[in-house]
C-alpha cells in the first residue's frame, strides 16, 4: 500500500510539469483555436536560454536562471507567433499546424547545434531537501515545482479575469468577429497570448530542467505528447482542467509503471485518453461552447 501512495505522490508531483505544458497548449487553443506543436520545444529552448546567464555570471543563483528562462520563453513565444501565425491566414489551420512542426524541428536542431546534443546539467532549488514521514518521502524540488505551477495558474487566472488584457483575450476567444467590432485589436491580443504562454513555457522548461536535473532535446517529443494528452483530458481551452489533468496523468502513469512496468506504461496513458473520449468527450472541464 505504501508503494501505491508513494508512486502516486511522486507521479502527481511530477505531473505538475505536464500541467505547465498543458496550460500553454490549452491557452493558445482557447484563444486562437489552433494547435501550437512547437510549444514544448520552445519551452525547453527557453530553459536552455536561462543557462546563458551562467555563461556570463558563473555563480548566478538558480532563481536568476529561472527568471531568464521565463523572459526568454516569452521572447520565443513571440517569435513563434511571428513565424507561424502572423502571416498565415486565420482560415488556414493546417498551414499553421505544419509551420509549428517546422518550428519544433528548428528549435530542436538549434539546441543540438549549440550543445552538440549532449545533456546539460540544470540548477535546481531545494534539490537536497527530502521530506520524510517514515518510509514515505516527498521530493523538496518537486514540491517547489508544484507550488510554482499553482502560482502560475493563479497568476494566469487573475490575468484572464481581472485585467483589461484578460477581458480582451476572453472576448477574442469567445467571438472573434464581435471582439473585432468592439475595437479590440485581435492581432495584438493573439500576439500577447503567445507571449504569455511563452513566458509560462519558459518557467515550465526551467522547472522541468530543475526537476530532472538535466536538459536534453530528447525531452521535447515526450513532453509534446503528454502535454497534448493533458490538454484533451482537461478539456480543450480550460486552464484549471489542464492543471488537474496534468497531475492526474502524472499520478496515473507512475502507478501503472509500478504495477505494469515501464514498457506498458504509456499504452495505459493512451487508454486513459480513450476512456475519457468515450465517457467524457469534452474532457474534465468541457468549455461551454463557442466557436468550432
Amino acid at each position: 500500500m505504501l508503494d501505491f501512495f508513494q508512486s502516486l505522490s511522486d507521479g502527481v508531483l511530477f505531473g505538475s510539469t505536464y500541467a505547465l505544458i498543458g496550460i500553454g497548449f490549452t491557452l493558445v487553443f482557447g484563444v486562437m483555436h489552433k494547435l501550437n506543436l512547437s510549444y514544448a520545444a520552445a519551452s525547453v529552448g527557453g530553459a536552455y536560454c536561462g543557462l546563458l546567464v551562467l555563461q556570463v555570471f558563473a555563480g548566478a543563483p538558480p532563481v536568476v536562471v529561472f527568471f531568464c528562462a521565463f523572459l526568454a520563453g516569452g521572447l520565443l513565444g513571440w517569435l513563434v507567433y511571428l513565424t507561424c501565425f502572423h502571416f498565415i491566414p486565420i482560415s488556414n489551420p493546417l498551414a499553421t499546424l505544419m509551420a509549428t512542426v517546422g518550428m519544433l524541428l528548428l528549435i530542436d536542431e538549434i539546441i543540438v547545434h549549440l550543445t552538440a546534443g549532449m545533456p546539460v546539467g540544470y540548477p535546481a532549488m531545494f534539490d537536497d531537501v527530502m521530506l520524510r514521514m517514515g518510509e514515505f518521502t516527498v521530493r523538496g524540488d518537486l514540491l517547489m515545482v508544484f507550488a510554482v505551477s499553482m502560482l502560475c495558474m493563479g497568476g494566469l487566472l487573475a490575468l484572464l479575469y481581472k485585467t483589461r488584457l484578460g477581458l480582451a483575450t476572453r472576448a477574442v476567444s469567445q467571438q472573434t468577429v464581435a471582439a473585432l467590432l468592439c475595437g479590440i485589436r485581435v492581432g495584438q491580443v493573439n500576439a500577447m497570448t503567445f507571449v504569455i504562454t511563452g513566458l509560462l513555457g519558459g518557467i515550465a522548461g526551467a522547472m522541468i530542467g530543475a526537476s530532472v536535473g538535466t536538459l536534453s532535446p530528447l525531452l521535447t517529443t515526450p513532453l509534446t505528447t503528454k502535454g497534448l494528452i493533458v490538454t484533451v483530458i482537461g478539456g480543450l481551452g480550460s486552464v484549471p482542467g489542464a492543471i488537474i489533468a496534468g497531475l492526474l496523468v502524472g499520478g496515473f502513469e507512475n502507478v501503472l509503471q509500478q504495477y505494469r512496468g515501464v514498457t506498458e506504461r504509456d499504452l495505459y496513458v493512451m487508454l486513459l485518453l480513450f476512456v475519457f473520449l468515450v465517457f467524457r468527450p469534452g474532457g474534465l472541464f468541457a468549455p461551454k461552447g463557442g466557436r468550432d
Binding site: 498565415i88 499553421t96 519544433l104
Partner: peptide, 20 residues
Amino acid sequence: DWRNLLFGALIVLAMNVRPK
C-alpha cells in the same frame, strides 16, 4: 551543418509563402 537547421526553417517558410 546548415542542412539540418534549414530543414525546419524551410518548412516554416514554405507554409508562410504558400499557406495553401
